[in-house]
Each structure stands twice: as C-alpha cells, then as structure tokens.
Design a protein around this nucleic acid. Structure first.
Lengths: 233, 233
DNA sequence: GTTTGATTATGTTATTTAACACAAATATAA
DNA sequence: TTATATTTGTGTTAAATAACATAATCAAAC
C-alpha cells in the first residue's frame, strides 16, 4: 500500500464515472478530498470487520471481493474492474465490512471522504439516483447469484462463472481469451466448488472443445455451447 | 386483488416508515398519488417478468418473494412484513421484476407512482439517503445469504432460516412461537433443500428438544442450541 | 541453479443430499 | 357427510460432490 502523488484522473472525470452528473465545482471538491493509493497484486485492500473510512474507487487493476464462510471457505461475491466502487455497501449501510477485498492485479484506488460524498449526494439528487441505481443493479445480480450457486450443478455453475468473467472483463485482442487470469482456486471460490472439481470440470470443457486452456489463459471456443451448459444448470 | 377505498394510514405516516423524513406537503403529494389494494392469501402480487408500475408498500399481511430456478425449483429470496417495500429493486433498476411476490396472508398494499416517487427523491435528499441505506442493508443480507445457502449443511441452513423468521416476524405472546406459519415446502424453499429434508430436519430438531412442532406452529425451545446449529453450519 | 512452496492434475472413497416411492394425516370442496 | 386434493411423514436408492491422497508441474526465493 503506497500513497500516490500522481492522482488518477478517470475516477472522477471519465464518462463511465458515476460522477459525470456533477458540475465542475462539485468535481473539484471531490478531487480535493481524496487519497490515491497503490496496491500490489496479492495485497489486501480491506478485511471483513474493518471500518470503512470512505468510498473506494478502483481506478486501475482488478479486485476480488470475498467472504469467509464455514471453516474459512472463501466465496467470491464480486469482481471489480475500473472504474468501479468497492466496499461501498458497508460505507452506505454504516456497517463494518462484511467482505474482504484483494488486489488480483496491481491496483490504483482513490478513497473519497464519506462526509464529502454524503454532502454531494445531498446537494445533487442526480448523484443520489445514480447510487440508488447502482445498488439496484448489484442487488439483482446478488439475488441471481444466490439462486444460481444453490441450484445449478457444477458444470452449470462453472460455465456461468466463465460467462460472468467474460462479460465483466471482456476478451483479449483474439476476441476469445477471457481478459482475467484467475487461479483454479479462485475459479472454484467464485463457483462454489472445490478446487479439484474446478480443475476437473475445466478439463472436461477442454475435452469437449468448449474451452482451450493454456495455464490460466482460458479461451472460449464455443460460446453457444458454454451458454447452453450454463442455462441447463 | 381488490382496490380499496379505505386507504391505509401507516405506510406513509408511521414512525417506522421511510417517509418519516418528508414534510406534510410532501406526504400529501404521496397520499394523493397512490392506489391501495387488497390481496387474499395465496394471490400473486407480481410475477417474474412483469413491468413494475410503481413502488409497492406492504401495509398489512406477509409476503414471500421468490425466484424460479432450475427446473422451476423455487428459492425464497426475501420475506416482507409491514411496513416494508416489495419489488422496489426492479423499479429503481428500471428492470422488469426478476422475482415473484405472493401473499402468504391476506394483504393490503399501496402502490405509489414511480414519477411522484422520483420527484420526491429529487427534492428531498434525506429520502434519497433512506433508500440508499435500505438498499445497502438488503444487499448485505443477500450477500450473507449467498454464502449461507451454499456453504452450510442442511441443519445449519434450516436453523438459520428459523432464526431469520423469528428475527423478522417475532414471537407470539408465548415469546417462543415464531409468528409466521409456513408450509414445510416454503421452509424448504427458503433454506435451499427438498421438502422431505425440511420435514426430516424439523423432526430431528423436535427430537432434540430444540423445537416444539404443532402443525405449522414452530416453538423455539432452545434458542442457544438453534443458534449453535446455525453457526456451526 | 537448486531448493522450496504453491498450483495444477488425477484417482479413490466417503458423505451429503436429492430423487423417488408410498403411506398417513389434514384440509378443501362437492 | 364423503370424496378429492394437498400437505406431512418416512424409508430406500441414486446421484452429486466433497474430502482425501498423491503426483506432477510451475514459480519464486535463496
């Protein structure tokens, strides 16, 4: 964790940013009250139980957000990419974090003071509605996940996770390789299965020519079939 | 579904209502733009895929919110009691419903026009923050549920559901009987298990003197033990 | 460059839970 | 009431998946 003097621009200024609804003066206020930090791959950004000290915006890198369940078993709740928020639920609920966040690539984050954020939400109703919309979408995602992870069988769960990763992070230039490189263990923790079963199921997808596997590079060879496996459960 | 002329009072005026932050003029606007409806036990309030036409406030009765999963298998996502909202996620996300709602008791609901609600949120930032807070809490609940339902074993899942029902609906006057009467099938669908297994596990809780069962009346005899079963998974 | 630890891979066994079958009890309707 | 459907209860079997064991491969540290 290293504080950074070259502050990121896009968190606040990008067209994809939720803050696009702010005027110049409001954006400047935001810019003044943030701290930018760098995290190395593998570093923890926050831990379950920690107290949120502000809104965390991910400017660069990729993050996994996970919960420790029964017997320390990890369940990945969410994957974050730039530009996006992490840990915002706890901040808005006034809770401590109920999940942990870990940089799966080198990351750059901005932390925005809670008081300033609340002040801006109070003064700009469009920003409030943007946050409401963000929550509504993530809650829908979470509800879907609950049903998927509990009802689909292993193949369906893994297939769905792969499609989710593809939708979230997109493809490499070859338009087939998923643009994120997770360990088999992370894939398992995303899909609610043991590492062994993730490995086995990946192999069978490769045998069936649905995927091509090269270490952690996963290339989708047959998207239609992968979707079918995901849908059938 | 019967429209009701005696409009409910508490949805808007109660101290538990999210609308407590509104002033009198704002409350009147809300009161003018709502439709109150009665539903009989067993009636569907909305279905997965329907288009939300406003914010639904539950004034009276109890509702289960559920999703149809693989092979039509039902997963109960949420239980609602007065005063509370149902289907608000879809409305705020601008989506169609991704879950269905069914009255498990006779119910009275108010429907508030979306345009009026958005107008109020825009003009009253406290209301906006209240909705943000509501979402943040429900998202936390949903994330917890995902981990619970995937990782805990049958006994742990059922024990947790019973504790959840007790926390949500409270006790009868005997301070032990859970104040909601669900079928074994609903208990199963809440806890991600088959009906047979819900029945069997309930019986074993009764044998262990953790519960006393009288039809659908479930009396908690040993709360500490039930919590332990829930925690151990 | 070697050692050490982590990750990936694969086979076997044990456990959990669903699926199925059917009976009894209860609620609902004719 | 009697008939019919629904819910509850219980036993048996089958399927899915975790747990465990062990080896091979790969990456990182010394």
């Amino acid at each position: 964790m290293i504080h950074n003097r070259n502050k990121c621009e896009k968190c606040i200024d990008s067209q994809n940013s939720i803050f696009k609804v702010l005027n110049q003066r409001e954006k400047e206020l935001l810019t003044k009250h943030r701290i930018c930090t760098n995290y190395k791959k593998g570093e923890i950004i926050f831990r379950e139980g920690d107290r949120p000290s502000g809104l965390i915006c991910l400017c660069e890198g990729k993050v996994k957000v996970f919960k420790e369940g029964v017997g320390g078993r990890e369940q990945i709740i969410r994957m974050a990419k730039p530009i996006g928020f992490i840990g915002y639920r706890a901040m808005f609920a006034g809770d401590n974090y109920i999940s942990s966040a870990l940089a799966i690539e080198d990351c750059e984050i901005c932390m925005i003071e809670k008081e300033i954020l609340i002040k801006l939400i109070k003064s700009n109703s469009d920003l409030a509605l943007e946050f409401i919309n963000t929550f509504a979408i993530e809650l829908g995602f979470s509800n879907n996940r609950t049903v998927t992870l509990t009802q689909k069988h292993i193949r369906g769960r893994l297939a769905e996770s792969l499609l989710f990763l593809k939708d979230t992070f997109g493809y490499e230039e070859d338009k087939a390789t998923i643009k994120v490189y997770l360990s088999r263990e992370d894939l398992a923790n995303l899909s609610n299965m043991t590492t062994s079963n993730a490995i086995r199921t990946l192999s069978s997808f490769a045998t069936e020519k649905v995927l091509a596997i090269d270490g952690r590079r996963l290339k989708i060879l047959n998207l239609k079939e992968l979707s079918k496996i995901s849908e059938l459960g």
